[in-house]
């Protein structure tokens, strides 16, 4: 029973991170219709920037959240306003845009990765921060991982309220359902799409900050997190933000159960779930 609790809590801790990563990707795909292969690179940028801020400038990773989040937002917003906007006007229809934008995000992934290699080199970076442990139900957990979970849940809840209650949040949902009709209501659609892409990038950037507190970082760390994001996004239902939130926790718990028996098999288990999912229920938990 105690073991069970350990595994469940470890799963929640991991799941919070996955949920955050996947929500960002889901927002970018669900509304802006960009299946962003470069999503992992925004995570990497968040993590590596946090490492630099902490080890070089002695700025706390918690402060890095409010630096990296907005920076990633601005970067994402600008990339959408320039590259994806241009691509949209060149694409004959949404279908063409979706495939073109995915290819373009592939290119973006390599560009960001190469710049990161130039800036940070290939070394694996780690730092020690908030190393205290907290005991929950007898098991010990790193305080930094609880902070991560707290951030993931807070961002999930705030974002949900933002979508449900605010004027811009409603415009985002409307644009996700029918961009052309949202335009007829007076929504500046190109602006909303860029906003969503930027918010997705900000979530990735913040996830990167949180990841760097618990895990080693390097310029090519993005790949692994991209894979997790894709699996969770499909698991939750393509483009469904609540689905991604729930799916993230679900995958985290599965990951933690698998690690309990065989630590090296995490990723293999994720791929297996992914394949089974595609065969059995390709629209995911919340998809229609």
């Amino acid at each position: 029973m105690e073991r069970f609790l350990d595994v469940a809590i470890a799963g929640l801790l991991l799941g919070g991170l996955y949920a955050l990563i996947a929500m960002g990707m889901s927002l970018q795909y669900g509304v802006a219709r960009v299946f962003n292969i470069a999503h992992g690179e925004f995570i990497m940028l968040g993590a590596m920037t946090t490492w630099t801020l902490y080890t070089v400038f002695n700025i706390s990773p918690l402060v890095a959240v409010v630096i990296c989040g907005p920076l990633a937002f601005v970067l994402g917003f600008i990339i959408h306003r320039t590259m994806f906007r241009k691509l949209q006007s060149l694409s004959a229809n949404q279908g063409v845009f979706e495939s073109n934008s995915m290819l373009a995000s592939f290119g973006l992934m390599f560009v960001i990765q190469n710049i990161a290699f130039l800036a940070w080199g290939p070394e694996i970076r780690t730092y020690n921060y908030l190393m205290e442990t907290v005991s929950i139900g007898g098991a010990l957990f790193g305080a930094r991982r609880l902070v991560t979970l707290g951030f993931a849940i807070a961002i999930g809840v705030i974002f949900y309220i933002f979508l449900a209650r605010t004027r811009i949040g409603k415009a985002i949902r409307a644009a996700g359902q029918d961009p052309s009709t949202a335009g007829l209501m007076g929504v500046n659609i190109n602006w909303v799409l860029a906003l969503c892409f930027g918010l997705g990038a900000a979530m990735a950037g913040i996830a990167g900050v949180l990841i760097s507190m618990s895990y080693p970082d390097s310029a090519n760390m993005g790949q692994e997190y991209l894979t997790v994001a894709i699996i969770v996004v499909v698991l939750g239902g393509l483009g469904s933000i609540p689905g991604s939130f729930i799916g993230g926790f679900l995958l985290g718990i599965i990951g933690s159960i698998v690690s309990f028996y065989e630590p090296g098999l995490n990723m293999a288990a994720y791929y297996a779930i992914f394949v089974i999912l595609l065969l059995v229920r390709p629209r995911g938990i919340m998809g229609r």
């Binding site: 409603k170 409307a174 359902q177 009709t181 007829l184 209501m185 007076g186």
Partner: peptide
């Protein structure tokens, strides 16, 4: 002009087939 700018000027287009936001 973009559609959103035209609505602001005072034209409302009620489209064919209703085009409601069905999940709202």
């Amino acid at each position: 002009l973009a559609p959103h700018a035209i609505v602001e000027l005072g034209i409302s287009h009620i489209p064919e087939g209703r085009k409601l936001f069905s999940d709202m």
